[in-house]
Computed example of a mutant assay.
Amino acid sequence: MTLIDVYNLRKEKISETELKDEIFSVPVKEHVLHEVVVSQVNRRRAGTAACKSRSLVNASTRKLYRQKGTGRARAGSASSPTRRGGGVAFGPQPRAYVKKVSKKVRKAALRMALSDKLTGSQLFIVEDFSLPEIKTKSFVGVMRRFDVTKALIVTADKNEKLEKSSRNVPWVKVLRSEGLNVYDLLKFDHLFLEKPAIDRIEEALIS
C-alpha cells in the first residue's frame, strides 16, 4: 500500500489515503501503452474516405475509336484511369482501422499509466470536487492553487457544476471514473482523482 495526501479545493491537506500497489505501483512498459493508444486512436477514425474506380464511373463502355490505323495509342473506354474524368487507380475505399487489443492488455496499460502519474508526482487526490457555483473563474482559481496548466479530472459521479465550469477551459478535461482511458492519462500532464473514484477504479482494474 502507498500512502498519499488528500487535499481540499484550497490545496490544504486534510487526510491521507492508501493506494493499492497492484494498481498504482506497477512497472511501466512503453510498448504496451503504445499498443493501446494506437488502438484507441484508430477507433476514432471514420474510415469513410472513398473514390470511384473505373467500374464505378458513369461513362460509356463503347470503344472510343478504332484499334489500328489512327497513329494514337489504343483506348478501350472513357473510364480508364489514364483519361480525364476516368476512375482512380488503387484509390481509397471504406475500411475499418480497428486494431483489437484484449481486455487484459487494456487493464494493464491503465495500471501502468496510473503508476506513471504517481511516480512522477503528477497525481492529486481531492476529497470532493464540489464547487459552490457554476463559474469558470472560480474553477480556474482552484487549478491555479495546484499550479497546473494541463489536467485531467476524474470524478466518481456526474458533477454538473464542475463539468459546466470547466467546459470552456481548453487545458482541462473532466471524466467520470468509468470513462478513464490510457490516451487521456498520457495526454494530460496532471491527474486529479476524487477520493470516492479511487475505489471504483481499483475495483474495475483488479477484477
Score class of each variant (00 low, 15 high):
Val32Phe: 10
Val32Gln: 02
Glu35Met: 12
Glu35Asn: 12
Val36Pro: 02
Val37Phe: 03
Val37Lys: 00
Val38Ile: 15
Ser39Leu: 02
Ser39Trp: 01
Val41Asp: 15
Asn42Tyr: 09
Arg43Pro: 01
Arg43Leu: 01
Arg45Asn: 03
Arg45Trp: 03
Gly47Met: 03
Gly47Arg: 07
Thr48Trp: 05
Thr48Arg: 13
Ala49Phe: 11
Ala50Asn: 15
Cys51His: 06
Lys52Ala: 00
Lys52Gln: 01
Ser53Asp: 14
Ser53Arg: 12
Ser53Trp: 03
Ser55Asn: 02
Asn58Cys: 02
Ala59Gln: 12
Ser60Asp: 10
Ser60Pro: 08
Ser60Glu: 13
Arg62Pro: 03
Arg62Ile: 07
Leu64Asn: 00
Tyr65Ile: 02
Arg66Ala: 10
Gln67Trp: 03
Gln67Met: 07
Lys68Gln: 07
Gly69Asn: 05
Gly69Tyr: 06
Gly69Thr: 04
Gly69Ile: 02
Thr70Phe: 03
Thr70Val: 02
Arg72Asp: 09
Ala73Asp: 10
Gly76Leu: 10
Gly76Lys: 07
Ala78Gly: 03
Ala78His: 09
Ser80Asn: 15
Pro81Thr: 05
Pro81Leu: 06
Thr82Phe: 12
Thr82Tyr: 09
Thr82Ala: 13
Arg83Gln: 14
Arg83Glu: 10
Arg84Met: 04
Gly85Arg: 04
Gly85Ile: 00
Gly86Tyr: 05
Gly87Trp: 00
Ala89Leu: 09
Ala89Asp: 05
Ala89Lys: 10
Phe90Asn: 05
Phe90Ile: 08
Gly91Glu: 00
Gly91Ser: 01
Pro92Met: 12
Gln93Asp: 08
Pro94His: 14
Arg95Ile: 15
Arg95Gly: 14
Arg95Glu: 15
Val98Ser: 13
Val98Phe: 12
Lys99Arg: 14
Lys99Trp: 04
Val101His: 09
Ser102Glu: 07
Lys103Val: 09
Lys103Thr: 09
Lys104Met: 09
Val105Trp: 08
Val105Lys: 14
Arg106Pro: 01
Lys107Asn: 13
Ala109Phe: 02
Leu110Val: 13
Leu110Met: 13
Leu110Lys: 05
Arg111Asp: 08
Met112Arg: 01
Ala113Ser: 13
Ala113Met: 04
Asp116Glu: 15
Lys117Val: 10
Thr119Ser: 11
Ser121Pro: 00
Leu123Val: 05
Glu127Arg: 03
Leu131Ala: 06
Glu133Ser: 13
Lys135Asn: 15
Thr136Tyr: 04
Thr136Gly: 01
Thr136Asp: 00
Thr136Ala: 01
Lys137Gly: 06
Lys137Ile: 14
Lys137Ala: 13
Gly141Tyr: 05
Gly141Gln: 06
Val142Thr: 03
Met143Ser: 04
Met143Tyr: 01
Met143Lys: 00
Arg144Gln: 12
Asp147Lys: 10
Lys150Gly: 05
Ala151Met: 05
Ala151Trp: 02
Ala151His: 03
Leu152Cys: 07
Leu152Ser: 05
Leu152Arg: 08
Ile153Cys: 09
Val154Phe: 04
Val154Gly: 09
Thr155Met: 04
Asp157Ala: 11
